[in-house]
Design a protein around this nucleic acid. Sequence first.
DNA 1: TCTGGGGTCCTAGGACCC
DNA 2: TCTGGGGTCCTAGGACCC
Length: 436
Amino acid sequence: MYALIDGNNFYVSCERVFRPALNHTPVVVLSNNDGCAISRSNEAKALGVAMGEPFFKIADLQQKAGLVALSANFALYGDMSQRMMTVAAGLGPEQEIYSIDESFVSLAGVRGDLLVRARRVRERILQWTGLPTCVGIGETKTLAKLANHIAKTAERKPGVYARDLAQVCHLGTLSKEARQTVYQSSDVGEIWGVGRRIGARLQEAGVNTVWDFLQLDPAIVRQNFGVVLERTWRELHGVPCIALEHAPANKQEIACTRSFGQGIVSLEPLIQSVCEFASRAGEKLRRQRSCASQVLVFIRTSPFRAGPRYSQSVVVPLRRPSANTADLVSAAVTGLKLIYKPGFQFAKAGVMLLDLSADNHHQGELELECEEDETHAVQAPRLMHALDTLNQRYGRGTLAMASTGLTERTRLWSMRQERLTPQYTTSWQDLPIARA
DNA sequence: TCTGGGGTCCTAGGACCC
DNA sequence: TCTGGGGTCCTAGGACCC
């Protein structure tokens, strides 16, 4: 048996913890550059604001309907997430943190009434962190996901499901008939693993609800939609096919990409951005103690705007696997110059680190070897360590690698004059907690 | 004017080899 | 008319997730 605990409208709820005046008003949290809505309160959803909707299309709702739009504060959400996860972990012996606002908890061996226990944990999260959540329980992760959807919908849209399924829904407690009713009221598109495309194809075939999907022949599902969906079908029938993943595996690729608030029309600012992306990606790389063998860089014009379009990427192989920012930046800039073309308004760029492997060199950092060529190899990891430590302590961007861009081999270390916006600094203890 | 930023897995098809 | 067959590796692209 698995539980899925999920924060309701997570980013908005985090903001509301610190600004209770935002309760009961329509609120959205916006992405980078205030581009689009990535979290919506129930009131905002009721106004018709869609997930990912561009802000300029809903900006008028501020005047018309009192919509409050906030710029995202990801440092805050990460912090709140950790607290929520810590409490949620108390539900069972093992937890998989699936995303910033969701975790699966294995209920294997947990005795007593799971429903009661889940309600208690949910209440505790609300009291200790201020975050509202919903809990879904089922025999497999896919069923727990579905149960979670039911718990949320039953709370938000009374009438779709029975009222007592709101907030915490345990499919295992339902009778056969009650389960059928629930499955018949659930859209096939709500299934974990059924997205827009497959959902549309299923509906074309007359499969509209979860119940319809369950009646299909698994061989047909496999033949028409592949092994992934067949696995989903089995999971929905209560056969576990997707295991809980305890320790998050190392990333197989690491990306840092951004859209630009305003289009970029020359090489120089692109170089600056790409340097920063490569540096950030390098930090993530070293955090998981990996090396990259290839660096991909891409630039792209806006797919939404009129005007000439251009989208290109290139993979630059490194001479040897590296976790050194200097190598990564150098490769990224080399690649950028290969694909850059003047005459376009670039809207987005990014750097991806590929073909990752364990950083064995770093492990043996302190064993000084005496080959002549080792000087750089031994110093570089220490330099990187110092870089990461300083940036962690004094804020992202305190110390950065400068690229003159034009002379490739010239590398400078420089204190950056302009610091980024101060990070969120409230600590655990400063949190206002509503105690019952 | 203004449209997020990450990731994963699977499959098909080409290159290459024997 | 008709142009082997099977294995492996790699890559691009499509689908999904949050």
